[in-house]
Structures are given as structure tokens and as C-alpha cells.
């Protein structure tokens, strides 16, 4: 039961984080469309790191 709550919290946190990353990347692209490639790459890397963290938490928490 507590595991499930923890998993939910992890997902909420990861969701907020991913939203921030994606949103800021969009803003960046809107401001500087010529830097789209670089922003996308950086975004994907950060998102991937966050994702790894979230998955780690989920798996450790799932028991």
C-alpha cells in the first residue's frame, strides 16, 4: 500500500520535472528557433536522467 503511494509520489515528481524540462525547452526553442537541435539534445539528456531517477525510485520502492 505504502509502496503504491510512494510510486504515485515519484510519478508526480517526475511528471512535474518533465513538464518543466519540456516547457522550458519549448520556450527556448520559441525564443531561438535556430538553436532547436542543441536544445532538443540537451532536453532529451536531462529528461533521460530524470527518467532514470524516477524508474530507479519506482523499482526500489516496488520491493
Amino acid at each position: 500500500m505504502y509502496n503504491l503511494i510512494g510510486a504515485g509520489l515519484v510519478v508526480i515528481g517526475a511528471g512535474i520535472g518533465l513538464g518543466q524540462i519540456g516547457g522550458k525547452a519549448m520556450e527556448g526553442i520559441a525564443r531561438q528557433p535556430e538553436a532547436t537541435g542543441k536544445i532538443q539534445t540537451a532536453m532529451i539528456i536531462v529528461a533521460a536522467l530524470l527518467e532514470g531517477l524516477a524508474f530507479g525510485a519506482l523499482i526500489l520502492g516496488k520491493g
Binding site: 533521460a48 536522467l49 527518467e51 532514470g52 531517477l53 524508474f55 530507479g56 519506482l58 523499482i59
Partner: peptide
């Protein structure tokens, strides 16, 4: 490596 392996797997 853990994040690499877990990400792909998951």
C-alpha cells in the same frame, strides 16, 4: 550504468 539499464528495461 544502473540508470542506463533500468531505463531501457522499464
Amino acid at each position: 550504468p544502473f540508470s542506463l539499464l533500468v531505463r531501457l528495461f522499464a
